[in-house]
Every structure is written in C-alpha cells, then in structure tokens.
C-alpha cells in the first residue's frame, strides 16, 4: 500500500525580497528549502513505512533542480522519489499543479493500492492551501485537512481516524481509505538524516516523469492550464513605529508607558 508525500521545493521566503521596481520576487542567490509543512508530510509517510510497512514515495513537481530536494527525501529513507518535470508544467497555479500531481498519483495507484496521500497544509511561498484538496477532488479521495494526529489506522478494515486542528478546537474524523491528509507542524517531529543515508542518497536514482510519460493535455498544465494570474506582489506599507521611554535607564517606567500604550489601543484585555 502506498503512502505518498507530495513535497515542494520553495525559495527560503525569509530570504526573499521584493523588487520595488518590478514588484516581483528577487530569487537570485536565494537557497531553496523543502516547504516546512511538507517535511511533516514526508515524515508521516516514512512513519507509515516504519509502522505499517507501507511503501513511502516522495513526489514533487518542479524544475530539474528539484532533484536536490528529492535526494534529501531519499536520505531520510523514502522507498522511491519521483520528479515530475517538464517545460510545459512551468508557471502552474494550484489547479494545474494538482492536475499533474493527481495524474502521477493515479499512475502509481495503477500498480499498487493507494493508501494515503500526505501534503503539507500549505506552502510558504504561495500560502494557498489548495493543492492538497485539489488532488483529493481530482482523485475522489476523502480529504482530511489540518491533521495534527493520526489516532488510528486499520489496514484490515481500511479506515483511518485522525484529529484535525481547528481554530480553538479539535475534531476527530474517521474516513475510509484512500485518503488525502494535509499536515500541520504538530503532527510529528521530522527525523534527521543519518550520514550513511545521506551518502547513499547521493547515488540513488531519482526517476523523472515528463509529460511524455504522464500524457496530460498540455492545455491543462503549466501556465496554459492556470486560470490564476499573479498581477502584483508587494510588501504592505507599515506605519512607522515609535520608540517610547528609555528601556536602558528606566526599564520600569518604560514598561508602564508600554502598558498604557497597549491599553489605549485596546490591545490588552483587562
């Protein structure tokens, strides 16, 4: 049974700046990282492998350099890493991305029974949280979003019970397999790769599937298949802050001033 983790290589957004002239992201020289939420998706698929003997697969759509990210997944111990890469996949929005990922998952499911697809709850560059649900909709999977705990997995009855982390409350949900789960940070603590695994991952073959393999209608992928267009990116103007008091010489007085200020803005509930 398959436990597939969909992961995305993203620019380290803490290091990305916006070019004020062109209103685009300056990505030059910015290191790529695995989308932090996806590291939890990957970890959970590895745990499915460790605990239930499922086959863990890391799947990523992106340019050829995404191979580095998949190699990291190999160092962590996935059974297989597959890169979905084709020029025509470029410029995709969430609709087009979920199309490619769903097609690839469907292809994998032809050969082996699909158990769970794990996705991070959202990416830190797009923040849409749409790709996971998009995959579920396309493949007709039960979708369990914002999962912070897997309560029970019964491979005999093929059911799963999870806890969803919602605003101010938890929700326990049960669903029949196969399911699509989006993961939050609280779900697990991602493992750290051992050196022997890192070294072995250097030589592992990362399979690449292009559109010749996937055979998707080019009109439904990449830029062409993306109805969403980003018009402008900008940093919101922020009001100038102010320095109150003298924290070095009069910490107590400054703390009083700060509390008065917060009260006057109604930011402190008393």
């Amino acid at each position: 049974m398959l436990a597939i983790a969909c992961i995305k290589q993203v620019p380290d957004t803490t290091q990305v700046q916006i070019d004020p002239e062109t209103n685009t992201l300056v990505r030059e020289g910015i290191p790529f990282i695995v989308n932090p939420y996806d590291t939890h998706a990957l970890e959970e698929s590895l745990r499915m492998h460790d605990q239930f003997g499922m086959r863990s697969i890391a799947l990523s759509m992106g340019p050829p350099n995404t191979e580095a990210t998949l190699r990291k997944a190999c160092a962590l111990g996935v059974d297989e890493a597959i890169l979905l890469s084709d020029r025509c996949f470029g410029g995709a929005d969430t609709l087009a991305t979920s199309n490619v990922l769903a097609t690839a998952i469907d292809r994998l499911a032809q050969e082996e029974e699909l158990g769970i697809v794990f996705c991070g709850k959202q990416t830190i560059d797009g923040d849409t949280a749409q790709v996971g649900p998009g995959i579920a909709s396309r493949l007709g999977l039960q979708q369990l979003t914002l999962v912070d705990k897997i309560e029970h997995l019964d491979l005999e009855k093929k059911t799963i019970r999870v806890r969803r982390k919602l605003e101010g409350r938890h929700e326990i949900v049960e669903a029949p397999l196969p399911v699509m789960i989006t993961t939050v940070r609280e779900l697990n603590r991602p493992r750290y790769p051992t050196v022997p695994m890192r070294l072995a991952a250097r030589d592992v073959e990362v399979r690449t599937w292009d559109n010749a393999t996937l055979q998707i209608d080019p009109e439904t992928v990449g830029l062409k298949g993306s109805p969403t267009w980003v018009c402008k990116i900008f940093s919101p103007e922020r009001d100038q802050g102010e320095i109150i008091g003298d924290g070095v010489n009069d910490p107590d007085g400054t703390a009083d001033l700060l509390i008065d200020k917060l009260l006057s803005k109604d930011l402190l509930a008393l």
Binding site: D12, Q15, P31, P190, Y192, T194, V195
Partner: peptide, 22 residues
C-alpha cells in the same frame, strides 16, 4: 549518535537544520 543514529536531544534539531540551511 548524531551521524549514525540521528539520536540527540530534540532541541538540537533546529540548530542542525538552521546551520545547514541558513
């Protein structure tokens, strides 16, 4: 422990990841 077993106090995970990524 770190390199063969990935076994270390959990607060070190951030240090290791941060040092490698940033």
């Amino acid at each position: 422990l770190v390199q063969e077993k990935s076994s270390f106090p959990e607060e070190l995970l951030n240090l290791f990841e941060n040092s490698e990524q940033r």
